Computed example of a mutant assay.
Amino acid sequence: MPLEHIHDQLRLRHPKRSFVQYRIDRPGFITPIGHHLSTAMRYTCLVRSLSSAGAMLSVNKTLTLPENFYLEIQGVRDGIPCTEFKREGEELVVRFNMFLDPDFLNAVLGRQPDTHAL
């Protein structure tokens, strides 16, 4: 899968981190970061898959985006800062500017938090 390119690079630097890729096929929005960090425009996308390090999106192939933007996944309150990693036609692979917190990732996936007693 396309996110594997990102994961291969990151596994060497973060061997204990999980880079499991989850297929979610959920609607989302791309919000470009403009002059003075303005966010006036929003574009629709489909979030195909997601990991703690990045995501694969389907976007309009004619859409021109800056290198950095926010990804909003429908049903999730917070935007995720992203950087474009690779683009081919309608397929856009993005890397998150920081790893997703496991609890946040579980919330996006619709999972209950892991609450094991010590």
Rank of each mutant, 00 (worst) to 15 (best):
V108L: 10
L12H: 12
F29E: 03
S38H: 14
D101K: 09
K61W: 02
G34M: 12
V108D: 03
N68W: 06
K61T: 06
N97Q: 15
V76Q: 12
D25N: 15
I80A: 06
P15M: 09
M1S: 15
S52L: 10
L46C: 04
F29T: 00
R11T: 13
G89D: 09
G34K: 11
Y22E: 12
F99L: 15
R48S: 04
R48N: 06
G54V: 11
L118E: 05
L37I: 04
T39E: 10
T83L: 05
N97A: 12
R23W: 06
V20G: 06
G34R: 12
G75T: 05
M1T: 13
D114V: 14
M41R: 14
D78T: 08
I73G: 08
E67I: 09
A53V: 05
F99Y: 14
M1A: 15
S18E: 12
F104H: 14
C45E: 00
R87V: 04
L100K: 09
T115Y: 07
L100T: 07
D101L: 07
H14Q: 08
Q74I: 04
T39L: 09
C82V: 05
C82R: 02
S18G: 14
C82P: 01
G79A: 15
L57Q: 00
Y43V: 05
P66A: 11
L109N: 08
F85L: 06
Q9F: 13
L12Y: 10
R42E: 00
M56L: 11
H7L: 08
D25M: 13
I73N: 04
G110K: 08
H116E: 08
R26W: 03
Y43L: 07
V20K: 15
V59Q: 01
V93K: 00
P15K: 09
K86W: 05
D8S: 10
I24K: 05
F69G: 02
R42M: 00
R87F: 05
M41N: 13
L63R: 06
I6V: 13
L57R: 00
V94K: 02
K16L: 14
P81M: 14
L57C: 01
H116L: 14
R48I: 11
E90W: 03
F29Y: 07
I24C: 07
L109G: 09
V20M: 13
R13A: 15
H35M: 14
L37M: 12
G79T: 13
P32I: 06
F19K: 06
H35R: 15
H35C: 09
S52A: 15
R111T: 01
V59N: 02
H36Q: 14
P113M: 11
V76D: 04
L12C: 06
P32N: 09
N60R: 09
M56W: 02
R42T: 00
I80Q: 04
P81I: 13
L12K: 14
L105W: 09
Q112L: 10
R23G: 05
V94P: 01
L50K: 08
Y43T: 04
K61G: 00
L118G: 13
R23D: 06
V59R: 01
R95L: 10
M56A: 09
K16P: 00
G89I: 10
H7P: 02
L109A: 11
P81R: 15
R77K: 12
A40R: 13
F19N: 05
R48K: 12
R17V: 15
A117Q: 07
I80P: 03
G34D: 11
P27A: 13
Q112A: 11
P2C: 06
H36T: 10
G34S: 13
R17P: 01
D78C: 04
L50D: 04
